[in-house]
Design a protein around this nucleic acid. Structure first.
Lengths: 117, 117
DNA sequence: TACTATACATTGATTTCTTATGTATATTTG
DNA sequence: CAAATATACATAAGAAATCAATGTATAGTA
């Protein structure tokens, strides 16, 4: 089995959105930093989300109406929670399903012997 | 199960390189158009490679020494075959392994119940 | 004759992400 | 207690991958 500490950027590219939507679907609501830490823990450090990728995505999804935000004061800091909107739930379900389906197809291309077992 | 005729671009993004290297590894040598048709057939039309994505990638991989080319005259046309170089074989093996490993990880994030079964 | 398939290629625009930077508070450690 | 690390937000310049459109040319089919 292939071993690596962290996947190369080119491999991870394009998967940030489904990952974020899945986490929000599971957790109800999360803040940015929490998302980065959660993905890192879930994947044993193999996937590490950078802030420069995450925040623009969260803002974009919010602008599109997929996500809603709630700001809460934690002491002197303001923490910004994100959660799926009602329409966002459907967007998340669709994207996650499509991604899982696609991975099955891709697996069958990259590994024909076991892909459709 | 999720059904679709063709995956959205954002889903397929980032997977072209491993797909192309895998096909070349399997077939020995292929020309551009052959690659597009092969992927389409293999995936029942769900993944369709565009020429604007494929040719720049092939040229880049050739420039990097991953691929070698052989041009052959077919009647009046010149057909350009691509195949893995010796060092390209290792590049292909590594990338394909990493991609398969990554997909296992991603699956476990998107579908925790069945991902590590 | 016109349309579709084969087969190469480029180019401008878009999207996504990286790397670097900036600000500020909170906690831990030497 | 000072320094370093962790928490937590954010932006901005640039790189990279890809798309959509376009271009050229031959071959086959309706």
């Amino acid at each position: 089995m292939y071993i690596c500490l962290m996947y190369s950027k080119e491999i991870v590219k394009g998967t940030l959105k489904p990952i974020v939507l899945k986490l929000l679907k599971e957790h109800g609501r999360m803040y940015g930093y929490e998302i980065t830490q959660n993905v890192k823990a879930l994947t044993e450090g193999k996937i590490q989300i950078t802030e420069g990728a995450l925040y623009p995505l969260l803002h974009k999804l919010q602008a599109e109406g997929v996500l809603q935000t709630e700001s809460e004061k934690m002491g002197k800091r303001v923490r910004k929670y994100y959660k799926l909107s009602q329409s966002g739930e459907a967007v998340a379900d669709d994207l996650i399903s499509e991604m899982l389906d696609f991975m099955q197809t891709l697996k069958s291309v990259l590994n024909p012997d076991y892909g459709q077992a």
